[in-house]
């Protein structure tokens, strides 16, 4: 027996009909809807500028699709809860936790993951270059997420203050504690001195 369904708030339905009947009716109703109206599984996703046809389950998160369906394992799953930021990707240029985004909700949007940050010729994005120069990453697990947040920041604000950078990256945990080095990287990438 489903607790949710039966627990409460039958009064409205009861006024209309008898309780037992209404319960069955509700269940039948939902079964009907399962058959029609729920999302199509085969969809097109725009990932790093490429259209990809993917078979996506209705409940699938973008992190799963990227990692397990498309092999883009640069997007890391640190907590799968929106509490660490390792899975940060850009959706229409805005940082999002891919672990907490349904793939179906990005059908009409542009997704950029860490694999799409470097230039087409393989040269590194200024953020990537600066992170190398500053030895920003330590274990590196949070780095793709840090980079995505930083890329979004610089796209919008090419010369951020250190405080703006700190705020913009604040949704990304680094357990190694390399925050200072990441901020140095952002400042360097934006052509500003770290002194």
């Amino acid at each position: 027996m489903n607790v949710n369904l039966t627990r409460r708030r039958f009064i409205k339905a009861v006024i209309a009909s008898s309780a037992v009947a209404s319960q069955t009716g509700c269940q039948l109703g939902s079964k009907d809807l399962h058959a029609k109206g729920s999302v199509e599984r085969l969809i097109s996703l725009d990932i790093n500028g490429k259209k990809r046809r993917v078979d996506v389950l209705p409940q699938e998160t973008l992190a799963s699709t990227l990692r397990y369906k498309l092999g883009l394992t640069g997007t890391k799953i640190g907590c799968n809860r929106g509490e660490c930021g390792a899975c940060t990707v850009l959706i229409d240029g805005i940082p999002n936790y891919a672990c907490s985004t349904l793939s179906h909700s990005v059908r009409k949007r542009q997704v950029q993951s860490i694999e799409g940050v470097a230039n087409k010729d393989g040269t590194l994005h200024p953020i990537q270059e600066a992170f190398v120069e500053e030895l920003s990453p330590q274990c590196g697990f949070c780095t793709p997420g840090q980079i995505m947040s930083a890329v979004a920041l610089l796209n919008e604000n090419p010369k951020p203050s250190r405080e703006e950078a700190r705020q913009a990256l604040s949704g990304n945990i680094c357990r190694c504690g390399a925050y200072d080095h990441y901020l140095n990287g952002v400042m360097r990438a934006s052509g500003q001195s770290n002194e």
């Binding site: 039966t6 039958f10 309780a19 037992v20 319960q23």
Partner: peptide, 14 residues
């Protein structure tokens, strides 16, 4: 067990 099933109320009333 959480408690009585309150659906029974409608059965009882009926």
């Amino acid at each position: 067990i959480l408690g009585a099933s309150w659906d029974l109320l409608w059965v009882i009333l009926a």
